[in-house]
Design a protein around this nucleic acid. Structure first.
Lengths: 294, 294
DNA sequence: TTCGATCATAGACAGCGTCTAGGATAAACC
DNA sequence: GGTTTATCCTAGACGCTGTCTATGATCGAA
């Protein structure tokens, strides 16, 4: 197999007409270049040079090969400069909380898609998992809730929201402004398995003597919402989940709030344009916005 | 520096969309290919693939590089087949006796120049030197006199000739049909230092009481002939030396003869066409031809 | 949770590209 | 004729680096 370094040796000899000087120009010794040419001639199956102790000149075959070699070497250089000219494509690995609505993630993706030379990679998980990934430098930016512990100072809150019931638009309680736990005693419940407040919600109902029937458990919010819209049951979820066919009503005495924001290892780990757009989508989609966005 | 094997690895991954199978197709292990791609990406200064454990796909940079890589690979293959198609150029290393006229060597060169795909290399020397080179496989064919010793059977005689005086065309004896040694007593002699018969010639004159003055000694027959034509002196040389301005006359009682022919290690070491043309020139240029040539 | 598929990493090995040393050849010079 | 100089080749040792085996990490699917 003809390797590139042999081509470089060959062209050096063609240029200098002399093994010794060619070797110098390649920064190798003359014997090295000598065996290199021999190797090339063997793999080509042809003699490329007529050697004498006075001068070295190309055979007709060698002359033909020189054209090929020059062309190939030129192509290599072309490829190298072409690659150098490209500015490296930045890849932003974005961790998003699994309990963010699919449509919101889609909005973020759309917002970031418009930035030139930046490619986004999405990873989803729970808040603690996102923190671990951030620590391990496996993501660059997380859209998550306020962290516990060491990364606390790096968190930049953007918007906060409460939790409420999601129930079919045709449900008798759908038009209410508030619903108490005991009113749901006969309702079928759907469990969002990855919900941050799974235990808190459970405790809320048991503390009020309500033991609803659990018809389905899923890690997919989209599936749960589809079931709600289909009239299968009701569930508890953050306020930002708003889809057609599903009514959202606050629950009495259920005052849990989550604050969403961005979390980074260092302030400038991610281009500001990216962070700004993420902030924008969050503020737009979630009621209680923070900071300058109003 | 981008080496060719890295290009092959890269293209294999592009083709298979998968490091593991690409590695198989390259007959290396997956880690080998992995570090290869990493190395390539480093020397290119750009990420070429987006990797996940599900699939591998090209970055925009990678896609551009793939075009270059394919072009280069194609060029390599082109060069390789171009070289394969060429039939190897045969080099015939021809040893010629130094005491052959320059014009005869030129005639041989011309005769062999017409044979396609064959290149001739001339080496000159004395008969014994040519034999040594033939033994050492440093020449393929020798045009020489009948050898002594082991190579005797390999010799194929072609033509034989005598020796005679070479003297200026304007010399008083130029028109004679034969000249005796004593007639040259007042003449200036020129010595052809590499002549096979140097000692024999010397003895011929001293035996007849003639001690000529030696005006010049040279290894170059051409120079000696020029001096003869210029009227500087006379010399003894094989009959085949015939040039304008120099008369050739036989010497009385000087019956030495040399038989010229071709000498090879093996019968088919050299293409018959080459041997035939050499024979042709020899027979044409020298009087007493041998064999079928008449 | 476990399993299978995938790519990355680490350390050992060995192949081969490279080096130093020395040989051969031939032209040029004294 | 012998010596010097310039050139390329060969032989053997060395060491870089390309390759391997073994293992880890990740992710999706059963």
């Amino acid at each position: 197999m003809i390797e590139r370094y042999l081509l470089r040796y060959f062209l050096a000899v063609v240029e200098h007409g002399n093994f010794t000087r060619a070797a110098e120009s390649c920064n190798v010794t003359q014997p090295t270049l000598s065996v290199g040419i021999a190797r090339l001639e063997e793999s080509v199956g042809q003699r490329l040079f007529h050697r004498s102790n006075r001068r070295v000149d190309l055979t007709p075959t060698g002359a033909q090969f020189a054209e090929h070699a020059r062309r190939i070497e030129a192509q290599f250089n072309l490829a190298e400069v072409a690659m150098k000219q490209r500015q490296p494509e930045a890849i932003i690995r974005l961790g998003v909380l699994a309990t963010l609505p699919t449509s919101m993630v889609a909005d973020i993706a759309k917002a970031l898609g418009g930035i030139d030379g930046i490619r986004t990679e999405f990873v989803e998980g729970r808040a603690s998992e996102l923190q671990d990934r951030l620590d391990a430098a496996r993501i660059d930016l997380a859209i998550t809730t306020e962290p516990q512990g060491r990364l606390r100072d790096s968190f930049e809150p953007v918007a906060s929201e409460g939790y409420g019931l999601a129930l079919p638009a045709s449900h008798p309680l759908a038009e209410r402004t508030s619903i108490a736990a005991h009113e749901l005693a006969d309702n079928v419940m759907l469990v969002r398995r990855h919900c941050e407040l799974l235990t808190a919600t459970s405790q809320h109902f048991t503390a009020r003597g309500v033991r609803p029937f659990f018809a389905a458990r899923s890690r997919s919010d989209d599936r749960i919402l589809a079931l709600v819209a289909a009239g299968v049951g009701v569930t508890v979820m953050p306020d930002c989940f708003v889809v057609p066919g599903v009514a959202r009503v606050p629950m009495e005495d259920f005052t849990h709030v989550r604050t969403l924001g961005v979390l980074m290892r260092e302030a400038d780990a991610v281009p500001e344009a990216v962070v700004a757009r993420v902030r924008g989508v969050l503020a737009e989609r979630i009621g209680g916005a923070w900071g300058d966005g109003g």
